[in-house]
Nucleic acid binder design. Structure first.
Length: 677
RNA sequence: GGCGAGAUAGCUCAGAUGGUUAGAGCGCAUGAUUCAUAAUCAUGAGGUCGAGGGUUCAAUUCCCUCUCUCGCUACCA
């Protein structure tokens, strides 16, 4: 394995439109923190970089909804998250933010460098524009009626009612949320990064030179590369972000995906004037900790940007994790289905390490995983308390009872003693090997095996019995138990920093180096230790029940809002109504449109004619069962080509709250083409 | 529909270039023990390794098809 002089560890910049939850922690920040602490313990030159990602449309939207400025929104969450990370013991060297001046400069410079090198393509396209407000509209700023479910408050990119993804032109009655006016298409100029230009280089760099990357990461990259890369716009029309630093770019900012990863660079600049040695020296190992949603940005796009710039190093590894679920349900900020870090820190004061332990133990390293409060409780009570806390407690209590807290001398050791002492080294090496390959669950398990080893040693050696017959032998036993305890303070330090600090205070020692681990004389004979307290305490059912009840209340609230009836629409005239030509018809033939999931191609008899309608109902109807059914259609809807098939009209469906579609049919058979009025 | 990842004991996960009884932790059962927060230690029960086919002397491990979960992507008038 190549040896590096220094390390640059980055953790995905949390988006500053909401607080941090356990999903972020398990996927990104706990692993990156363990890795960083381990490297520091080894005495490596390492810096850990993070900060708030503060640009982008969702923040401007949130600001608008709350009637405040975007800066106020990001100030709020930046403060909350910075403090929560600190309190939780995520030891970044810097937690910066992308609304900083230094970031604006860095991002502008980066853009300009590429611009001057001619790395961008300039292209104009048509975008929606609000003539009243005088600005271009992001998809999110356009609202209208969802063509799918009739929700009048659908966004231009997605209908939140039925989950359908949309483009603004799909909307019925589109209007700008800025001024309420009807948006028009207008030409606008943007810069594109031609990712396709880097495709073959990326292919080699990832697929050939980094076969050691995690399979989920490698596979995802391969999938993107095989699909072929397209030029990607690096700018957009928005007034919140880093302005595009060239002329004729008024009202344009860098696209958030372009400026966010540059945030790693600007944060490093802010941290140290020596930033370039971390970013531009081949002997630096850069590692990006991210969640799986970020793979494409960190493995494809950002490396392409760095490569285009020319002077930067590339990541050695991108150990992306999968997602964490909560009590069998996807974590969701908007549905409030989450355990929020800042709330956890209030509900479980002083228990940072318990959450760190629980999240690391079941981190979604190879597939999505589930966090449950019961598991959290079990991890604490059966492992931290029973195995680790208990071993430490018995050792320190016995030492205090027998020797008044003075470390006894180790005399002659027997074969079992020796194999236990050797085992310490072996475990240390195992932990190290796992950490180097980003297998944090395994590393933690091996580290805990040291406490298991200690418990077994005490049980086998039985000092409480031997003390009656051979007190000298007990000195050796307790010396070994104490050396194991001292080793724990090193090996578990990256995982449980708060508890190990406590333990060091009881042992009356200071923090040692990683390479001291494995030594069997960490505590000198005669060294005085202090009276211990409890390293961990049991978590009672009531505390767990309270958390589960909190989630149940959330679920109930969500269900109530989900079953809420869509509000009535505004009054229309009778004339409006009669403009719609709604009729009965009969399905003659039905077949699935090839290579689609939802589309059914139907031939129907409308009484007027036999025509084809394509409808997105294939998930709820088998072609065989729908043939012969009498249905209702809107016969005079303008025709539209779907998947190359001319669709004339629309089939009427009732959509249940769970999204299930049901045909709207006449109660008795009537002749085809009967008017519905 | 396309692509990627996954499916192994009640739970969380290892693992095998194909080869005698498939592993660990937690949970569970039994026994031992009392220094310790009813903690610990030992032993044990639990798996046709997602389903079906194929290749092979031999497959859970290789190949094919399928099902389910997650993600990306196409599609929904």
């Amino acid at each position: 394995m190549k040896k590096f002089k220094r390390y640059l560890v980055t953790s995905a910049l949390p988006y500053a439109n909401g607080p941090i939850h356990i999903g972020h922690l398990a996927g990104v920040y706990v692993p990156s923190d363990i890795y960083t602490r381990y490297l520091r313990l080894k005495g490596e030159d390492v810096i850990s970089i993070c900060g708030s990602d503060e640009h982008g449309v969702p923040i401007t939207l949130k600001a608008r909804n709350e009637g405040v400025t975007p800066q106020e929104v990001v100030d709020r969450y930046h403060a909350v998250n910075k403090k929560a990370f600190e309190d939780f013991g995520i030891a970044f060297d810097i937690y910066s933010r992308t609304s900083n001046k230094i970031h604006y400069e860095t991002a502008s410079d980066f853009f300009l460098k590429l611009y001057n090198k001619g790395e961008f393509i300039e292209k104009s396209s048509e975008q929606y524009y609000d003539e009243e407000a005088g600005c271009f509209l992001a998809d999110r700023y356009i609202m209208g009626t969802c063509p799918h479910c009739g929700n009048e408050n659908a966004y231009g990119d997605q209908c939140e009612k039925c989950g359908t993804s949309l483009t603004p032109s799909d909307l019925i009655n589109p209007h700008s949320t800025v001024s309420g006016s009807k948006p028009v298409l207008r030409e606008t100029l943007h810069w594109y990064l031609p990712l396709d230009k880097y495709e073959s280089w990326l292919r080699k760099w990832i697929l050939e030179d980094h076969k050691e990357w995690k399979t989920n990461v490698y596979g995802q990259c391969k999938s993107w590369l095989d699909q072929g890369l397209q030029p990607r716009a690096v700018s957009r029309d928005l007034d919140w972000g880093v302005p595009v630093p060239v002329k004729n770019a008024a009202g344009k900012v860098l696209y958030v995906w372009f400026d966010a990863p540059i945030g790693y660079i600007s944060a490093t600049k802010e941290l140290t004037p020596q930033w370039e040695k971390y970013w531009k020296d081949k002997e630096t190992k850069m590692v990006h900790f991210i969640g799986k949603d970020n793979i494409v940005f960190h493995c494809i796009i950002f490396p392409a940007m760095l490569k285009a710039e020319g002077s930067f190093i590339l990541p050695e590894n991108v150990p992306a994790n999968e997602f964490l679920n909560l009590e069998n349900d996807k974590i969701s900020t908007s549905r409030n289905w989450a355990v929020w870090l800042h709330e956890y820190l209030i509900d479980f004061p002083g228990k940072q390490d318990v959450l760190r332990y629980a999240l690391c133990s079941s981190a979604p390293e190879t597939k999505d995983n589930d966090f449950t409060w019961k598991d959290f409780q079990a991890r604490n009570n059966n492992e931290l308390v029973a195995i680790l806390g208990n071993f430490v407690n018995r050792t320190l209590v016995l030492t205090n009872n027998y020797y008044d807290g003075k470390v006894p001398a180790r005399g002659k050791t027997d074969p079992n003693d020796n194999s236990v002492l050797n085992e310490i080294v072996r475990l240390k090496e195992n932990v190290e090997a796992s950490l180097e390959t980003f297998r944090f669950r395994e590393a933690l398990k091996e580290a805990m095996n040291l406490a298991r080893l200690g418990n077994k040693y005490l049980a086998d050696a039985e000092p409480w019995k031997v003390i009656k017959t051979d007190p000298d032998r007990v000195k050796t036993i307790m010396n070994i138990a104490l050396q194991i305890t001292a080793n724990l303070t090193i090996i578990l330090e990256p995982f449980l920093p708060f508890s190990m600090e406590k333990l060091r205070a009881w042992l009356n020692i200071s923090l040692m180096k990683w390479n001291d681990a494995g030594k069997t004389d960490l505590l000198k004979t005669g060294h005085i230790i202090n009276k211990p307290g409890l390293l961990f305490e049991k978590i009672e059912d009531t505390a767990i029940t309270r958390q589960i009840d909190k989630l149940l209340a959330t679920r109930k609230a969500n269900e109530a809002s989900a079953t809420k009836i869509v509000p009535g629409k505004e009054t229309v005239t009778f004339d409006d109504f009669t403009r719609l030509d709604i009729r009965t018809a009969t399905v003659l033939e039905a077949e699935k449109v090839p290579k689609t999931t939802k589309l059914l191609k139907l031939k129907i008899d409308t009484g007027l004619d036999i025509r084809t309608i394509v409808s997105g109902i294939a998930e709820y109807f088998e072609p065989e069962t729908i043939v012969g059914k009498q249905i209702s259609i809107v016969a005079n809807l303008e025709s539209r080509k779907i998947r190359g098939i001319e669709s004339k009209g629309m089939i009427l469906m009732a959509e249940d709250k769970d999204g299930r579609l049901v045909l709207v049919s006449p109660a008795d058979k009537v002749s085809n083409g009967s008017i519905i009025k």
